[in-house]
């Protein structure tokens, strides 16, 4: 196996008394799409900033391309592409100029920058907006410019911090499609997200973070198999009445989860569980059987209202 692109051991980030990242171990292999999944404040962005060499490591060990960010930050950054959480595009320049000047920050010759910018705008389907300023673009378009910009230096590693947060479903799917294409070309992607479907779509492997720690690690499928059942039966008994129906549904599945608006029953076969409840005259206002997702894994791991 080739050496990992990123190695973190007991990695810690502190801001004063606040511990944002609390001793994590991570290895990211070349060509892998690796995700940090977790709620806001889990330490994902702090981790990404350390990997991007824009935030010093508080303690522990971090190596990117086998280099130490404390001493070789410039060399590491020259091989990384970054898509920040909030698009930090240059508002005073056009889309095209944004890409060209960004390439110049990497000491790429102007002519090369120009031709790569043309290709990349084509890739993100924004060739027709090349000479527009950034401001009038939609959120999804801006994010695509950010992605094109991050690729202009032909990075070996691409860091994406919540790449589709705030985008509408259509824009998200277009973005996912582009990221898939990059994956197929062999790019190494590291991304953070709090969307479970995004993690499932894009990540070969991911870690679930909560409170600065890693609480689970694996492929999306493996995590679902380990922490959830095959199917989930969702039932609504009406606002405020879900909690009192827990006792009625116990026993039909492996686990029951109570949410404010619905009950989740974790079970191998959702339909037969529903049929059994009907037989017991437990009739919800509505019921739905679905495949379990990372959302369920997350619910289980972070221990929100866990009822067994």
């Amino acid at each position: 196996m080739p050496p990992p692109l990123i190695t973190a051991r007991s990695l810690v980030k502190r801001f004063g008394d606040l511990v944002a990242v609390d001793g994590i171990d991570v290895d990211v292999q070349p060509g892998e799409a690796f995700g940090f999944l977790g709620p806001n404040g889990a330490g994902k962005t702090s981790t990404m900033r350390m990997i991007g060499c824009v935030s010093p490591v508080s303690s522990g060990r971090l190596e990117i391309f086998g280099l130490d960010p404390a001493h070789e930050g410039r060399a590491i950054r020259s091989r990384i592409g970054v898509v920040p959480q909030l698009d930090q595009l240059d508002q005073e320049l056009t889309v095209m100029e944004n890409l060209v000047i960004y390439a110049r920050y990497f000491d790429i010759p102007r002519a090369v920058a120009q031709s790569r910018a043309v290709e990349l705008l084509d890739f993100v389907q924004l060739a027709d907006r090349a000479d527009d300023k950034v401001d009038p673009l939609s959120g999804g378009q801006k994010r695509r410019v950010s992605i094109a910009r991050s690729l202009i230096s032909e990075p070996e590693l691409l860091l994406l911090d919540e790449p589709t947060t705030g985008l509408d479903p259509q824009a998200r799917h277009l973005l996912w499609d582009r990221l898939h294409q990059l994956k197929e070309r062999g790019a190494t992607l590291v991304l953070t997200t709090h969307y479970m479907d995004e993690a499932e779509q894009l990540c070969d492997r991911l870690v679930v973070m909560d409170g600065g720690r890693i609480v689970a690690e694996g492929s999306p499928r493996a995590l679902i198999t380990e922490y959830a059942t095959r199917e989930v039966l969702e039932m609504r008994f009406g606002r405020g009445r879900n909690e009192e129906r827990v006792d009625d549904v116990l026993g039909v599945g492996e686990r029951v989860e109570v949410l404010p608006d619905r009950l989740l029953v974790y079970v191998a076969d959702g339909e037969s569980a529903l049929a059994e409840l009907h037989a017991r005259s437990v009739i919800p206002e509505s019921a739905l059987v679905r495949r379990s997702s990372l959302e369920d894994v997350f619910l289980r791991l972070t221990g929100r209202t866990l009822v067994d």
Partner: peptide
């Protein structure tokens, strides 16, 4: 936030 984005480069 221009300098933030520039600092992500070399």
């Amino acid at each position: 936030k221009l300098y933030d984005s520039i600092l992500a480069t070399p």
